[in-house]
Nucleic acid binder design. Sequence first.
DNA 1: GTTGAGCGTT
Length: 83
Amino acid sequence: MGKKIYVGNMGPKADQASLQALFSVFGKVEKAYIVTDRQTGQSKGFGFVEMSSDAEAQAAITALDGKNCGGYTVKVNEAKAKG
DNA sequence: GTTGAGCGTT
């Protein structure tokens, strides 16, 4: 089963496709979701990714957490909510 | 804006 990942500080440039592309390097991305303000539609700069396996997810977390991506130091961690 | 959203509920 997949594992969910929190991805923060991505900046306004990030979208669902780029998020998925980024994590696809480490495995199959089941879902990628950018959180936006529901009322304004503006990106909150963070989102979630679900990998098809926990091993892939963990590899992605380890590789990407704290990494400068597109000018932003992204924060990547296992998601805690909405499991 | 370090954790999504539905639905208005346990």
